[in-house]
């Protein structure tokens, strides 16, 4: 049984609220008697705990998919169809309901498995992204694994250390910047845009380069 558009949107909101933003569950409040809530409850996507709406395991997984479809749609409109930015969000709201298992992965492949939506929020990854990472993971390599004179562009920066991120940002090492490795020993020396920098192995390993 397909659930209604309205019910999908509620799951999307709930998922963003509790899973992404880690907020307390929303109270039932004015949604009481709303048919979409009734529908989700009956289909086992949500449950009520002390008058709070909580996603079930099934609901969490479904909500995540709706968010993924919405943000993929945004990427599609913004990057490929060049839709005016103002329209991206409302259009995507409608479009997300038209995408279903399988189609969304095709769009994801078409877009090159984007990691964030045009607003900078993370796109939950799908099966296709995981397969892609395994097969072509080698096309992206940390800076410290590059060969001398090898060039590429910064794909992303991966570090949990906020200070390291700040340092790289201060040097302007950001996604999209072209990089050529000049030397590996005793320090990593590279050309980034019009400037040259030297970093140690720890910092170099945070920068991932798309070759």
């Amino acid at each position: 049984m397909r659930i209604s558009d309205r019910a999908e949107e509620i799951m999307e909101t709930l998922w963003v609220h509790t899973e992404e933003e880690k907020e307390e569950p929303i109270g039932l409040g004015i949604a009481k008697g709303e048919p979409a809530i009734e529908e989700l409850w009956k289909s086992g996507h949500i449950k009520l705990i002390r008058d709070k709406i909580v996603l079930t395991e099934k609901g969490t997984s479904e909500g995540r998919k709706v968010v993924r479809r919405h943000r993929l749609a945004e990427r599609l409109f913004a990057d490929i169809l060049d839709v005016k930015k103002k329209l991206v969000h409302p259009l995507s709201c409608e479009f997300e309901h038209l995408l279903h298992d399988g189609t969304e992965d095709n769009i994801c492949i078409l877009l090159g498995h984007p990691k964030t939506c045009p607003h900078g929020r993370a796109i939950p990854d799908g099966e296709c992204c995981r397969k892609f990472k395994e097969s072509v993971g080698k096309a992206v390599s940390p800076l410290d694994r590059l060969q001398v004179n090898q060039r590429g562009r910064v794909a992303y920066i991966q570090t949990r250390d906020n200070k390291a991120l700040q340092k790289l940002m201060a040097m302007g090492i950001l996604p999209g910047i072209p990089i050529t490795l000049i030397q590996k020993f005793p320090s990593f020396v590279f050309q980034a845009g019009q400037s040259q920098f030297a970093v140690d192995a720890d910092l170099a390993s945070c920068v991932y380069i798309r070759l």
Partner: peptide, 9 residues
């Protein structure tokens, strides 16, 4: 500590 430095021409 970690090392990073711009190498000016």
């Amino acid at each position: 500590p970690s090392f990073y430095m711009e190498i000016p021409p």
